[in-house]
Design a protein around this nucleic acid. Structure first.
Lengths: 230, 230
DNA sequence: TTTTTGTTTAACCAAATGGTCAAACCCAAT
DNA sequence: ATTGGGTTTGACCATTTGGTTAAACAAAAA
């Protein structure tokens, strides 16, 4: 007598219970989403099992179909959530009105902080996007609520303007804004995306890796700025 | 009466037939491996289906258990093959005795060429490594046949020596060899790893993307070298 | 207290999936 | 022509997996 199959599910609104018993806390829907996040991130959406998610959420498997109709929808929810955590900070900073040098320093600082806190996001997102290119649309949609048609041009416009100004002053070589951004993001994100490879190749434990990133946080701004000098 | 279960399978050695009929050519084992390569790359090893591989190889599903005992082993074979295509060129170049500036130019040139030919390798490898960290060992083992204990030190030693020389000449800021390599690889590989994201965000079709990479091929060496100047 | 409404579960189910096996097949050597 | 070994296949199987359903539960509304 519940949930006529096909209905869009009006979000259940339970909100009592500040801290529950066994697993963590929160209401069931959130616990499921959190568990799904963990499981999807370590297994990928093809490798993730609904049973494992249910177990990790301390919940019956059927309940996760009650809240999220299908595994696919749950995966989409997790992906959106992950992408939202990763991209907006950078976009916002790059689109801001700060001076170019400040922007660079800020993006590096912010991005590396976010990534240190969620080291496996890049690997997950890249994996997801590689095996499910359709997700790219969801990603850009989630970026800021605004469409990419609106955001990207504005971002590249201000960025390009700033670059041209620096070039006129003779303080910078010309560079296309998209290459500018690509270089910046490459240097920040890649080490995390390739983290297992990096750790294996350089024989680093987790602490070593954290130190490596800390060093990058110091060095990258200079490296990047010098790279653009005439 | 064939293949006693548990035996390691002595590699079958059929080698006649220069060009066969339907699918492509080659003997069955190779066709299977090729098909597996394609399927694993686009679906990931968790998402890949043995049936799809068999179909794409034009072969009965049982045959692929005959040649590769399990899906897991087939996946390992494909991974090794993929990793081998991607890493050795760079390693060899970096470990060579060329001048540092030449090395940089060469690595960028070679790596971008390889990646243009196999654009989805980075995404696949990162995905695989993220969801199956154990593969990291296989990777470094496949790198050159030599163990990482042997290769990495030699590589970083010559690299470090060259860097220190340049620093002494006042032509370069000091930088740790691992950071040097990480920066170089980041700038080369990331755009391919994040290709779906990049294309969606910058609204590029495949040709646009190829042009973007062509431009990088010109710009990266200068960017990288300038980044290291004092 | 009884009803009602949203939540949670145990028990099931059909389809998909990796894997097996005995038989058929092919081709070279006897 | 017969034999013998590697190769290929159709049919089959046990499990796993995403998904469903009817019933139980809990707490607020009547």
């Amino acid at each position: 007598m519940v949930k006529p199959p096909g209905r869009t599910r009006s979000a259940p609104r339970a909100k009592r219970r500040a801290a529950a018993a066994e697993p963590a806390a929160h209401n069931a829907e959130e616990r499921i989403l959190d568990a799904a996040h963990r499981v999807f991130l370590r297994r990928g959406s093809a490798g993730a099992r609904t049973q494992e998610i249910a177990d990790e959420a301390g919940v019956n498997k059927a309940l996760l179909h009650y809240y999220f109709r299908t595994k696919e929808r749950l995966a989409a929810a997790v992906f959106q959530r992950a992408a939202t955590k990763l991209m907006p900070p950078v976009i916002a900073t790059l689109a801001s009105n700060h001076e170019l040098e400040i922007k660079i320093a800020r993006v590096i600082d912010i991005e590396l902080d976010v990534l240190l806190e969620h080291p496996y996001l890049p690997g997950y997102i890249i994996s997801e996007l590689t095996h499910n290119p359709a997700r790219a649309r969801e990603l850009i949609a989630a970026l800021a609520g605004v469409s990419v048609d609106e955001l990207a041009p504005r971002l590249f416009e201000t960025l390009g303007k700033q670059i041209r100004a620096r070039v006129r002053e003779g303080r910078m070589r010309p560079i296309a804004p998209d290459q500018f951004m690509l270089n910046l993001l490459s240097l920040c994100i890649f080490p995390f995306a390739a983290r297992p490879m990096v750790q294996a190749m350089l024989r680093l434990d987790d602490d070593d890796f954290a130190r490596l990133i800390a060093r990058r946080k110091r060095d990258l701004p200079i490296f990047f700025l010098h790279g653009l000098r005439p």
